[in-house]
């Protein structure tokens, strides 16, 4: 009896998850009347603005990942090594972006870095892009920090650092050759989460008026019927591909198998 109930609940969960996806996919295939076709996808992929905005957002995502890794890995490493007492504070700081709405952050940026400020970043397109990347880094901070910190927990940071130091390594070498490779799984999961967030982000990109993918999706949603749905399916596919890549990379990393 409980078995049947368990299966029933499981199936219900599956339906809840799969039905909207299936409906969405099915709808995206019905652009041509009376038959299934990939017209909506073809129309999207051929759209010059899609290509432009998508490329822009992917670039932003990569920049954000690099900046995020450069900030988070040394910070998490140093906090673990030398200032374990500060960990709660750092964790609190990294969680702030989850409670402060993006719109508040971006308004703050615009007020702080406008053309009449001491650092007029919004004066040029490149400056605004930099500002946007910084904003994205803040948004991705909770995910990146958690992932890296968890990965750091699985290695003996102090002893490995001391071993490397006694072998003549400086901080750069330690971070690059010892710490980063050993927390790579965490860095990658943080990176893929960052990628997913940045590619779909709307608020910051729209208010800073950058040609990003989020605002494009929003505009497309207002104007068209089938294409936005096709776009959503594509977005799901990208997310799943990222998740698959995470587990693939973790599995091919030989030395990580021992730890897990």
């Amino acid at each position: 009896m409980t078995r049947i109930l368990a299966w029933a609940i499981f199936l219900l969960g599956c339906l809840y998850f799969v039905l909207p996806l299936w409906g969405m996919t099915e709808f995206s295939l019905r652009m041509r009347r009376g038959e299934y076709s990939l017209d909506a996808y073809a129309s999207i992929l051929a759209n010059a603005e899609f290509q432009r905005t998508f490329a822009f957002s992917v670039t932003m995502a990569l920049v954000t990942i690099v900046v995020g890794v450069l900030i988070v890995v040394p910070t998490a490493f140093w906090v673990r090594l030398r200032m374990p007492g500060l960990r709660p504070l750092i964790e609190f700081l990294t969680l702030l972006p989850l409670v402060i709405p993006a719109i508040v952050i971006v308004f703050g940026y615009i007020r702080l870095y406008n053309t009449s400020s001491w650092l007029p970043l919004t004066g040029t397109a490149m400056g605004t892009n930099i500002l946007l990347a910084m904003g994205y880094t803040v948004l991705a901070l909770p995910y990146m920090y958690r992932a890296v910190d968890t990965a750091l927990r699985s290695i003996d940071v102090t002893t490995l650092t001391e071993a490397a130091q006694s072998l003549g390594a400086g901080w750069g070498t330690i971070l690059w050759r010892i710490i980063l490779p050993n927390v790579l799984a965490g860095v990658l999961s943080g990176a893929f989460l960052t990628f997913a967030i940045v590619v779909g982000e709307f608020t910051m990109a729209a208010l800073l008026d950058r040609p990003a993918f989020g605002p494009f999706m929003q505009r497309l949603g207002q104007d068209r019927a089938y294409e936005p749905v096709a776009l959503a399916v594509i977005a799901f596919a990208i997310t799943w591909a990222c998740m698959g890549l995470i587990s693939l990379v973790t599995r091919t990393q030989k030395h990580l198998r021992a730890a897990s």
Binding site: A164, Q165, L167, R177, A259
Partner: peptide, 28 residues
């Protein structure tokens, strides 16, 4: 510590898990 030219062996081995045996020995 990295300027002292003093070698150290730890209780917990502290081998670099991401490097092979040869790379570990060659690290310094």
């Amino acid at each position: 510590p990295n300027q002292r030219q003093i070698g150290m062996v730890f209780q917990a081995y502290a081998l670099f898990p991401n490097l092979t045996v040869a790379q570990n020995v060659g690290f310094g």
